[in-house]
Design a protein around this nucleic acid. Structure first.
Length: 198
DNA sequence: CAAGTGATTAGC
DNA sequence: CTAATCACTTGC
């Protein structure tokens, strides 16, 4: 598995990037340098400024959303509900606030570390966007991190999953977004027991 | 099914 | 400044 290059992230179609991230490996080293990682099994695309569900809807540009305007391949990490972090990958060129939310991973390396951090069974270590951040040790210190050059990375084998292996449906937790909430911009690996329960 | 938690945002 | 909201998770 090789680290994914900048050109993967800067493509114009965030929905396609969300699909292509499935099957890739998200790696977050521990402080001592150990690899903790998992295969991305569930994602959602957010396409500001048109997308009502996006934090950058209408071109909103604030302290938090500023990261979404960075170049593709930048991590966008924010804190919600007073308890949880969410890990996103910024896509497209600088100035266009597109991002993919990573919602679930299948643990691969450092499973013992994830068990210790989460204290749950193996199917529930990272089957949700908040849970995955706990399992991987992701917090706002990683906001704006460069996935192409920094320690946190996404690796791929160069093969894209066949269409038949990918399922899609409406995004979760964005009921306020009206018609945009109904778009099938959530993707997961069909049949994966490591995808979220939503 | 509802509580919990605090950053973020819009609106005075 | 205040108050409402929130791309969620857990335990009842």
């Amino acid at each position: 598995m090789r680290r994914v290059p900048r050109s993967f992230y800067t493509r114009a179609d965030v929905v396609q990037v969300a699909r292509d991230l499935l099957g890739m490996l998200l790696v977050v080293p521990t402080r001592s340098g150990r690899r903790v990682s998992g295969i991305i099994v569930e994602t959602e695309a957010y396409r500001g400024p048109e997308d009502r569900a996006s934090h950058a809807f209408g071109g909103r540009r604030t302290g938090r959303t500023e990261t979404m305007y960075a170049v593709g391949g930048t991590a966008y990490v924010y804190f919600v509900y007073g308890m949880y972090h969410q890990f996103n990958v910024v896509t497209n060129v600088a100035g266009i606030p597109h991002a993919v939310l990573v919602r679930a991973i299948e643990p691969v390396e450092g499973i013992d570390v994830m068990r210790r951090r989460r204290g749950r069974g193996d199917l529930e270590l990272a089957n949700g966007p908040g849970k995955l951040c706990i399992a991987l040790g992701i917090d706002r210190g990683l906001d704006r991190a460069d996935l192409v050059r920094g320690p946190v990375r996404i690796e791929g084998g160069g093969r894209r999953l066949p269409w038949s292996a990918i399922a899609s449906g409406p995004r979760i937790g964005i009921d306020y977004a009206g018609a945009w909430a109904r778009r099938s911009w959530r993707f997961w690996i069909r049949g994966s027991p490591f995808a979220s329960r939503a």
